[in-house]
Amino acid sequence: MTPIAESAPVRVRPARRLLDALGGPQNLSLIGALAGVLVVFGYLNPAYLSWSNLAVIGVAATIPALLAVAQTMVIICGGIDISVGSQSGLAAVVAAMVFASTGDGLANGVAVVAIAVALVVGVACGILNGLIIIYGRVNAIIGTLAMLAAYKGLAQLLSGGRAQGYLHGDDLFIFVARGSIAGLPMMVWILIAVAAAIHILLKYTDIGRNIYAIGGNATAARLAGISLNKYIVAVYAVMGFVAALAGVILAARTGSGQPTAGSEGLELKAITAAFLGGCAIAGGRGGVGGTLLAVAILSALDNGLTVVGVNPFWQNVAQGALLVVAVVVQQRRTGERAVGLPA
C-alpha cells in the first residue's frame, strides 16, 4: 500500500453510493425488518395493509418519531434524555393552562401565546437537564431519570392531576391536530421539518460534526477546542424544545392538556427507536434515517399486534424485548466486547 496521492479521486461504486444514500448496510437491514413486519401482519390480516390502516400507523408514529429524532442527536453526543415523556406532559399542561388563562377560562384564549410559552418551558427543562449533567457532574441517565419524576410531578401539581382547558374551540389547535397540507396531516409536516433540520445539522454542519466528535471521544473533542459544555446544554435544550412541540401536538389532538396521558412512556419508545436505528450506546454513531426507520418498525409492530388481537399488555413486553434486541445487535455491530461472555 502506498500513501494516497495528493488529489487522488476516490472512486465510489454506484451500488455503494445507493447504499450510502440509504444510510449504509445497517439501514438496509432495518428496511428488511420493516418489510418483514408488514408482510407477516398483512398475511395474518389483509386489512392491515389497507391505506386507512397504514395512515393510522403513520399518524401514531409521528409523536414518538419527533422525540426519537431529537433523542438520536442527544445519544450521538454521548448523552441520553429519559425525561422526554414528562417534558411533553408538562408542555401539554402548560399550553392548555396558558390558553385557558388568556381566554375566558375555557375558550377564546390566545393559542400562539400558549404554544410559545409551552415551547419556552420545554427549552428551559432541557437547559436545566444539561446544567445538572454538566455542573452537577451527574451521569446523564441518573440526572434525567430524576427529572423524569420531577417534571411529571410538576405537571401533576400544576394541573391538579386533571385534564386542563378545552382546546377544540380554537382554530390553530384544530389545525395542528387535524389540518392537512397537500394531503399530509399537519403533524407529519412538523415531523418532516424537525427531522430534516436535525438531519442537516448532524450531517452537513460543523456543529453536527462536533456533536459526533464529542460522543466519539469527549477528551479529544475538548482538546481540539470544542466547548463541551455549550454543546451539551444546547443539545438538551433542542431535545426539550422538540419534547414540548410533541406535548403541544398531544394537547391539540386530545383537546386538553393532560399531565401523563399520552406522554407517559414516550421516552421508552424514543430511546428504543434510537438504539434500534443504529445509535451506539456510548455515543458518536447513529443517524436520523435509521431512527425514523426504527420508529416505523416499532409503530407497525404495535399496530399489527393490535390488529391481530394480541393483548395490549403483551405489546409492552414486545417493546421491552425489542430494546434488548436493539442493544444486543448494536453491541455486536460495533464489535464492542460483550459483557459477561467468556473471554
Binding site: T205, D206, I207, R209, N210, Y212, A213, G216, N217, T219, A220, A221, L223, A224, G225, A280, G284, R285, T334
Partner: peptide, 26 residues
C-alpha cells in the same frame, strides 16, 4: 484516549480542529 476519534474516518480526524474554517454559513 486523548486525541483520536477511533471509529471515524481519517478525514474526520484530520479536520476536527478546523471545521469552522472549512464551513460557509456553518
Amino acid at each position: 484516549a486523548q486525541a483520536l476519534l477511533l471509529r471515524r474516518s481519517v478525514r474526520d480526524n484530520v479536520t476536527l480542529a478546523v471545521l469552522r474554517r472549512l464551513s460557509r454559513l456553518r
